[in-house]
């Protein structure tokens, strides 16, 4: 939150490069059209597809800010989706299903937070437990099958509905980002998180409720993961315990790192993480849309291209790398 501006430079530049690349390959990339009251276009697709990662990245920003990490978010997404679909399947109301799914996410977050803040487990170990167990729980809830959601279910609006032409997932994600940025700016929460991540012992001596702050960060993470899970389930009209949110914990951590946060905690930027999430989704979308003389990029290369781009971005941002460059110059002189 502190040094806004400079640290957003590289992510912004990276996004600009990605967008320029797309615009060159496909002049229609920036076109937006209103089709049946719904805005369509590549840019909207990116935001829409990226909404789950964006939500995860927001929560992950706070968790990493406290010096922690949450590996269980993908599994929590699956749990939330399975809980909602299962309840709907057995005739529960939409509101009940939504509340139960979000409640499951909250419970998961509190569980993680308790293991870390109260029991004192290391965040990696504590959330690794739920990363493994969570998917198991989701499979138990869904009996190991993909639970379909009825095509006319109201809950599908979360994934497919629009408001003023904007897809609902986009609104949820951007709304959450705005709300969180507002909270971080208007309250002391952002400062407290940076303190806990920056020096836990000093925070305790200064009278901060270190445990509660930790607990709150993981709880919020759980809720955001549940919402991401609901979006994912509503998007495909089914809860797939095996694949929902798979590897998204890594995407969201990457997004936060790209956004310039310190993985050791104590420094974070919501705007940065937002950019990071958009960059990650833009890479995926760009690869999918790119075609070279009628041939698309082989699917097998997708992940490697993405990894290469992220590596390059992390390198230019790292201070080690930057220190190394002037050194080379002075050695040559």
């Amino acid at each position: 939150m502190r040094e806004i501006g400079r640290h957003l430079l590289w992510p912004l530049a990276a996004l600009a490069i990605l967008l320029a690349f797309n615009a060159l390959r496909d002049p229609a990339f920036f076109h937006l059209r209103l089709v049946e009251g719904r805005l369509t276009g590549a840019m909207i697709d990116i935001l829409n597809q990226g909404a789950p990662v964006l939500l995860l990245a927001l929560g992950m920003t706070l968790v990493i800010g406290t010096g922690g990490i949450d590996l269980s978010v993908g599994a929590v997404m699956a749990v939330a989706g399975a809980v909602a679909a299962d309840l709907l399947h057995s005739g529960a109301s939409t509101a009940t299903a939504l509340a139960a799914a979000v409640g499951a996410g909250l419970a998961a977050g509190l569980w993680n937070g308790s293991l870390i803040a109260l029991v004192g487990l290391s965040p990696i170990v504590a959330t690794l437990i739920l990363m493994v167990a969570g998917r198991g729980i989701a499979q138990l809830v869904s009996n190991g099958e993909i639970i379909d959601i009825a095509p006319d279910a109201a809950i599908l609006a979360i994934g497919r509905g629009t408001v003023l032409g904007l897809p609902f997932p986009v609104l949820i994600a951007l709304g959450a980002a705005a709300a969180l940025a507002g909270v971080a700016r208007l309250t002391s929460l952002g400062l407290f998180i940076e303190c806990v991540g920056g020096n836990e012992q000093a925070s305790r001596y200064a009278g901060l409720a270190v445990r509660s702050i930790r607990l709150a960060a993981y709880a919020l993470m759980g809720v955001l993961a549940a919402i991401a899970g609901l979006i994912d389930a509503a998007d495909i009209a089914a809860a797939d315990a095996n694949n929902c949110g798979l590897y998204l914990e890594l995407d969201s951590i990457l997004a936060v790192v790209i956004g310039g946060a310190a993985l050791t905690g104590g420094r974070f930027s919501i705007a940065g993480s937002l950019l990071g999430a958009i960059i990650i989704q833009t890479i995926s979308t760009s690869i999918l849309r790119a075609d070279f003389g009628g041939r698309s990029v082989p699917v097998e290369l997708n992940l490697i291209i993405k990894a290469t781009f992220v590596l390059a971005l992390c390198l230019v941002q790292s201070s080690e790398w930057r220190r190394w460059r002037p050194l080379r110059r002075s050695a040559a002189a």
Partner: peptide
Amino acid sequence: LVPRLSVRDNILLALHA
């Protein structure tokens, strides 16, 4: 001290808390 935070935030930390 919380080393990364500013002089102002460090001075005000207990009050904020």
